[in-house]
């Protein structure tokens, strides 16, 4: 008789069975795409060999996860306490790099990073009196460091001289 283990966790967790299933499906897709690759020029060792090998291993791993989940039913049950997620803050973090991708080429570096900093600090509930000076200072400092110390040319606004 094995003891029933119970543990608490705070995580957005799915069961091993779901995870294994996702893995198997992803691996099947990759394997299928690999078989459609051109056979490669010399011999039989083309660009498809390695991805196909990988997808076989991935399918086995996925099956392993599924089997383990079934075997552990009842003995190892994670009582996952669903943690309350702050979607607004998460969305702000994900939106920031996307904004940077879109804005950087036209708005230039400063006008991209400064709003990002202000937005993130605002959703993280910093006080406004701190946000503006800190964000401005950081933008200038990072820009100076990259351009002058690392000699990385950062983009400038197409419509502004700075």
């Amino acid at each position: 008789m094995r003891a029933i283990k119970i543990f608490w966790e705070e995580a957005m967790r799915v069961t091993d069975r779901t995870l294994g299933l996702v893995f198997v499906i992803a691996a099947l897709i990759m394997g299928f795409m690999a078989t459609r690759l051109p056979g490669g020029a010399p011999g039989n060792y083309g660009p498809d060999v390695f991805p196909i090998l990988l997808s076989i291993f991935a399918i086995l791993t996925g099956i392993g996860l599924i089997v383990r989940n079934s075997a552990n039913q009842g003995t190892l049950k994670p009582l996952v306490r669903r943690v309350r997620l702050d979607w607004v803050r998460g969305a702000a973090v994900i939106a920031s790099p996307i904004y940077a991708i879109v804005a950087m080429p036209t708005f230039g570096y400063s006008l991209t990073i400064f709003p990002v900093l202000v937005l993130l600090m605002a959703v993280f509930r910093c006080r406004l009196i701190i946000i503006l000076p800190v964000a401005a200072l950081c933008t200038i400092a990072i820009k100076y460091a990259f351009i002058n110390v690392l000699s990385v040319p950062l983009p400038t606004a197409t419509f502004l001289p700075f």
């Binding site: 920031s96 950087m104 993130l120 993280f124 509930r125 990259f146 690392l150």
Partner: peptide, 20 residues
């Protein structure tokens, strides 16, 4: 809450700088 946004700014800049 102050540090994380600055780190993200560094990350965005660093990722950009590697290949412009």
């Amino acid at each position: 809450r102050l540090l994380m946004p600055v780190i993200l700014a560094f990350c965005v800049t660093g990722a950009f700088a590697g290949n412009n």
